[in-house]
Amino acid sequence: METIKNYLETMFANLPDTEETRRAKSELLSMMEDKYNELKAQGMAENAIVGTIITEFGNIDELKESLGLGKAPEPVTTVATIENITYENTEKRMLTIDEASDFAMDSALCTFIFGLGVFFCIISPAGPVFFSGFEELFGSNPLTDFISSFGVAFLFLSVAIGVGLILLSGNKKKGWEFLDEGNCGLESETEEFVKREIAENNTSQNFMFALGVGCCICSVIPVTVLGAMKIAVLESAVGPSLLFVLVGIGVFFILNSSRKVSAYQRLLSLNENTAE
C-alpha cells in the first residue's frame, strides 16, 4: 500500500496544494485502498496488486482538467508550442513591414549616394577637358595655365567627392548585415507589402532607367553637333565636357532606377530561401 501512496504523491507533486486537489487525492486514495483490499482478499500477490492499481489509475491530465487546473497547465503547453515556433522563427528572423520599409529607404539612399559618387567620378575629366579648351583656344600663356589648373583642381576635387560619397554609401548598409547572414524571412503581411511596393515602383523604375540610357546615348550629341558648328570654344571645351556630364547623369539614373525595387526584391529573396 505504501507504493501506491507514493505513486499518488508523485502524481500530485506538480499540482497546486488546494482544497480541491487535496480532496481529489484523498478520494483517489480511498478508491485505490478499496481496490487494494479487495484484490488482497482475493489472494492476489502484492506486486500484482500494485501493478493493477497503477495501470488502472488513469491519467493525471484528465484530473487536472476536471479540477479546473486544465487551464493553468494548458497555456503552459501552448506557450511552449509558441516558443517552439518562435524559436524556429528567431532562427529565421521575421521582418515587419516597418523594417522592410526602413530597409528599402536605407538601400535607396545608399544607392542614391553611391550613384552621386559615381557621377562625380565620371564627370571629373570634364574639368581638365573644359579648361584645357581655353589653352587650345588662346595658346599657352600664364592666364590659360592658371585657368587650366582649375580644371585639374576640379578633377581631383570631383574624384575626391565621388570616392568620398561611394565610401559613405556603404555606411547606410550597416545595421542590415543580418540579412546577409541568412536565417531571415518576411512575415506574410510584409511579403504582401513588398510585392505591392515593387509593383508600384515598377513604372518609375522603367522611366528612370530609360532616362539614364537616353542620357548615355545623347552624350555624343553635343560633341557631334557642337563639333559640326565649328566654333572652337564649343568644339574643344564645352562639347567633350558635356559628354562626361551626360554620361554621368545617365549612369546616375540607371543606378538609381532600381534602388527601391532591388531592395524589395532582395527582401523577397529572403523568403524564397526560407521556403526551401
Binding site: 480541491e20 481529489a24 478520494e27 483517489l28 478508491m31 485505490m32 488502472e56 489509475f57 488513469g58 491519467n59 493525471i60 484528465e62 484530473l63 482538467e65 476536471s66 479540477l67
Partner: peptide, 14 residues
C-alpha cells in the same frame, strides 16, 4: 470496461 480512477473522479467532480 474498467473505468480508470482519474476518469471516475473527474466525472464525479463534473
Amino acid at each position: 470496461y474498467l473505468i480508470k480512477e482519474t476518469t471516475l473522479y473527474s466525472a464525479f467532480t463534473r
